[in-house]
Design a protein around this nucleic acid. Structure first.
Lengths: 201, 201, 201, 201
DNA sequence: CATGAATGAGATTTCATTCAT
DNA sequence: AATGAATGAAATCTCATTCAT
């Protein structure tokens, strides 16, 4: 019984990975169910044994990755004795998350705008986002207590950083001429976000 | 004859405005040509007298708005004797631009990824983006010469700020719980970007 | 303007006739939109310019024919000075109606059972059925006043006759061996329903 | 060995009963094999060990019930010394049969029209229908000899009564407003069919 | 024997684009 | 020049049936 369930779960993961691969490179609408099935190496119908519909797959991918992000933040930031390190880690995790999944996130936001995402699935995502936000806030609150951060409402700060990172790596409108080195960018961004662009006098 | 051309140009603008209105609120795919024609108040066929296809309209809108942005930057930043003011203006213009057009920009990027944007149209956009970038670089170079900015490559800085602003206002993944006040955000963002989030010791 | 509308209405009728032809011979599910388009001699999309979906066509056919039936009843029964003649006409009209459209009616009932018929369309049908029933009742009431009918509630009598005729011609479960002559049947049925099957003593 | 066969036969009956339950309430097409298996409490594949396909089940159900009907008619009508009683019983049995199975019968007729019923299975049904008809005819012939029935060809009379009853209870096109009491209807129908609707002078 | 995961043909519906009027 | 009716490619999703376990 447990074996059957494990096998089923495994197959679900295989589908998710294949779909994630495709959704990462092209917009949701441009990926067909036939393609996903071909990428998985199974029939179209098989996918529908594991997911209700195409949007369900998309949501599931995000839910999973968001879960991973939460675990990472909890581990590297919440339980980190060094505050500056914690903040740095938070910025790095955020950056990498959105760098990796912004095509998918952007697809999801678009689908939601068109009411293609079931309320129930949205709640799942919602809860994880909330948890992530709360963790960030908790880090920033600590920053305030330790007088390491500018005196700005923690919630707003967390929101704003989310917003900034959300698409720091959004497929650049003019990507052709900037072949950026991710590591270089993440450090530059951290530098700017922690110190600002104006030179201290 | 010049009158005829003016009339034609006028009609083109009317279509662009109507389409822009629709593309701003919903993803490109969710807006039909029928709807655009209805919004314009003309027949569907008429639109095809002015534009080759749906993606052409989208590109044209962006091209126009990008032109406006360039003019504004030139006027408020390039010719501004006060450097800090110039930088502040630049940040504000960027923010407002992406706030207003990110749904459209996002749609365009998506269409381009699917090879729906003609090379020729892309070049147009490209040139304007390049011009905008050059202007930003020129401002930052001045900032470096006047020792007002952190010593970071001007091109990279300009790119990074583009990236940050590009979707600072992107429809938030979790928009339900943050009813943000745009003015408050723009000032907060400027604060952070100029001073960073870490409190000066 | 009136010409355009007339043309549109004409095309709608052409589609209805083609669909009616197909739906009369085979169950709804067995008729594809492709087939209807082919029968009409137009593209699939054209049909959707006139009808919301496949079930809409079905409903529209029934609505139209029911309208014709109502007119006929009004003319031949309601305004008929000879009561026996009126009743005879009513029975004949009923019989021919259900003989001609029972495959279609049966399809519609089935689709409704599966909630494929919009409430709004149902109301349309409903009103016509009600009107038809009221007319029958009115005829029967007159029959009662003139002491020509057995003393049975007019509504129930009308309902019962509807039920009997509704499928007196329903594709016989074993149609292969009874190649019936419709006229012979209708007279036989009238005989039985007027005199009963038991011989007067 | 006989035990094995009995077991197999038993299982077949269990499946038939479950399927009959489902097919009685919803059209054939709306009932899935998954549902049937769930109702039976077995795997989908198991059903295919007993029946060739979905249409085979439907045919088998009808065949069985038709057999029961034949037995009942034989017992209650053919061997009945009281002719009027025999005829009454026949009408009652017919009515109840079609009342109970018209959804199923209607489904079967539809499937046959689409050539989904194997010739071989059809013959089975055919023979039973023929037997039933012959019995009815035999009763009516006796009625004629005893001068109790109107002088109408027995075959045609039997056919007609089949037709009338076949769908006296067919889901009324306008079922919403007539919540009929089956017993009341059967007696009313008997009254009409025996005395006719015209009042004796 | 019994199972149920896998399959893929096939159906409906949408909508950008064309073109006769 | 302006129109909007007509088109048909293309996408999602369902479900009877098979077959490896």
């Amino acid at each position: 019984m447990s074996l059957k369930e494990r096998e089923k779960e495994f197959k679900k993961q295989v589908i998710l990975e294949a779909a994630s691969r495709l959704f990462s490179n092209r917009p949701f609408e441009a990926v067909t169910m036939d393609e996903i099935a071909r990428e998985v190496g199974c029939g179209k119908g098989t996918i529908y044994l594991h997911f209700e519909n195409k949007d369900h797959i998309l949501t599931y991918i995000i839910s999973g990755e968001l879960g991973n992000l939460c675990s990472d933040i909890e581990e590297q930031c919440l339980n980190n004795p060094d505050l500056v390190d914690a903040i740095n880690n938070y910025l790095g995790l955020q950056f990498r998350f959105f760098r990796g999944y912004n095509q998918i996130l952007s697809s999801w936001v678009r689908r939601r705008l068109q009411d293609n995402v079931k309320e129930e699935w949205m709640d799942n995502i919602h809860n994880k986002l909330k948890k992530k936000l709360e963790m960030a806030v908790s880090v920033f609150e600590r920053g305030h207590r330790e007088k390491k951060l500018i005196p700005v409402d923690s919630y707003e700060l967390a929101r704003l950083l989310e917003a900034i990172f959300q698409d720091a790596t959004f497929p650049f409108v003019d990507e052709r001429s900037w072949h950026y080195d991710p590591d270089r960018i993440v450090s530059l961004m951290k530098l700017i976000l922690t110190n600002g662009i104006m030179q201290a006098v």
